[in-house]
């Protein structure tokens, strides 16, 4: 869930058409037209990624007069399915998976159950990945994978490259090799499993 309160605005004079912004926008809201970046205002989620990386400082963030609430209605899907999907991805449904927007696993699961098929669509619908733009790609990929979906990274984009290892997948020989160096793999599996299986505090359908 996110309240979008700003929008990216391109200064066409300054834009040199390098495509950086198009390659990193987490919701694919930027397209190049006549070698200039053009923002789709309806899609922009105000994350400022483009503004922060444009090498020519051609993008400014502008405050929206009317902020837009972006949110997937979790109660619109059977909560048993939401719970099942989250736990298969080894998340508690109430676990926060995006710290900036306080988006919980259940909302991303609900977005997937309602038809979202890629991280870009999920970000567009829930706002996840539009705060810091850094920390929450893996939970999104894990939830998609648990739903049997294998998304392809946007062609030519730098939005994301792939799912990476989870602690449950660390090979035994690696654990053994580094057993004395303070990584506590098995102990961390225990705590993550306990969290994933803990009862929820407030079912979204109650």
């Amino acid at each position: 869930m996110k309240v979008v309160n700003q929008l990216a605005v391109v200064d066409a004079e300054k834009c040199r058409g390098c495509k950086t912004c198009e390659r990193i926008c987490p919701v694919l809201a930027i397209k190049m037209e006549n070698r200039k970046a053009v923002v789709d205002n309806e899609r922009c989620r105000g994350c400022a990624n483009c503004e922060q990386r444009c090498p020519d400082y051609a993008i400014k963030m502008v405050k929206l007069e009317q902020p837009v609430l972006v949110k997937v209605d979790v109660s619109a899907v059977d909560y048993a399915l939401v719970e099942d999907l989250c736990r298969r991805a080894k998340f508690n449904p109430e676990q926060l998976i995006c710290y900036c927007t306080a988006t919980r696993a259940e909302e991303v699961a609900a977005a997937i159950l309602q038809g979202a098929r890629s991280p870009e669509e999920i970000s567009f619908l829930t706002g996840v990945r539009t705060g810091c733009k850094v920390e929450c790609i893996q939970p999104v990929l894990r939830l998609l994978e648990a739903a049997g979906i294998k998304p392809e990274p946007p062609k030519g984009g730098w939005q994301w490259y792939g799912r990476t290892v989870t602690v449950w997948e660390i090979p035994e020989e690696v654990k053994k090799k580094y057993a004395s160096r303070g990584f506590y793999f098995d102990e961390d599996i225990k705590i993550l499993d306990r969290v994933a299986n803990a009862p929820v505090q407030e079912r979204s359908d109650s």
Partner: peptide, 23 residues
Amino acid sequence: ARIETRSTYHQNLGPRAANFTAR
């Protein structure tokens, strides 16, 4: 590191195992 790696650290491995990412 890229976002995939940083997200591995903060979301995939757990509070102590996370430090294996860099190694």
